[in-house]
């Protein structure tokens, strides 16, 4: 049995756990804890190790989706999670511009780890507070070549589209090499 993995990363509360939960065929192995830091208390719990979802591709191939912890003090886990990934998805909360700088830092860190393809997903696009994806592209200083996809992490079709766009990028890179 061969296994491959895609890493879902992004700032605190970007929606990584929901993203994985939406397409995983198993209940996501969550490692959530109650938040103790007052400044980060915009939700009750957060991922402290990693989320872990699975999609069986066929009888001898399995895709794992790994979500990184959102809080900075768990940054040391990124390197471990990145090992052997096919590519990664940077999830950004479109309603919280205060996290855009952190999203850039995460993106640059992951790019330093591995030259794998990636896409950026502008999550929570269904909320009225959400920034337009093209405004986010400027704010995140993403070049026009980088795929920035509108996303709603709780919507299966939306999550599928993000995963497919990443896989298309991976395929393009194979064909270009």
């Amino acid at each position: 049995m061969q296994t491959v993995k895609i890493v879902v990363t992004g700032p605190f509360s970007a929606g990584k756990t929901a993203f994985i939960q939406t397409v995983s065929e198993i209940d996501v192995v969550e490692t959530e804890r109650k938040i103790t830091n007052e400044s980060e208390k915009i939700k009750e719990t957060t991922t402290v190790a990693m989320d872990f979802g699975r999609i069986t591709i066929d009888e001898d191939l399995v895709l794992y989706l790994f979500g990184t912890p959102g809080q900075r003090r768990f940054d040391f886990m990124w390197e471990i999670l990145s090992e052997g990934m096919l590519g990664f998805i940077v999830l950004v909360d479109s309603t919280r511009p205060e996290t855009f700088r952190e999203a850039r830092r995460i993106l640059e860190t992951f790019r330093a780890y591995a030259p794998t393809p990636y896409v950026v997903a502008a999550n929570k696009q269904d909320l009225p507070e959400a920034w337009e994806p093209e405004d986010m592209r400027i704010a995140l200083r993403l070049s026009p070549r980088v795929k920035l996809l509108p996303c709603v992490a709780t919507d299966k079709e939306s999550v599928k589209k993000v995963l497919l766009e990443l896989l298309y990028s991976i395929l393009e890179e194979i064909n270009h090499d």
Binding site: V4, L61, L86, K160, I174, D177
Partner: peptide, 18 residues
Amino acid sequence: KEDQRSLVNRLIARIRGL
């Protein structure tokens, strides 16, 4: 290259069918 393409195409086909 062929193996790489085959692997990614299998992933694409499966995700599309979810």
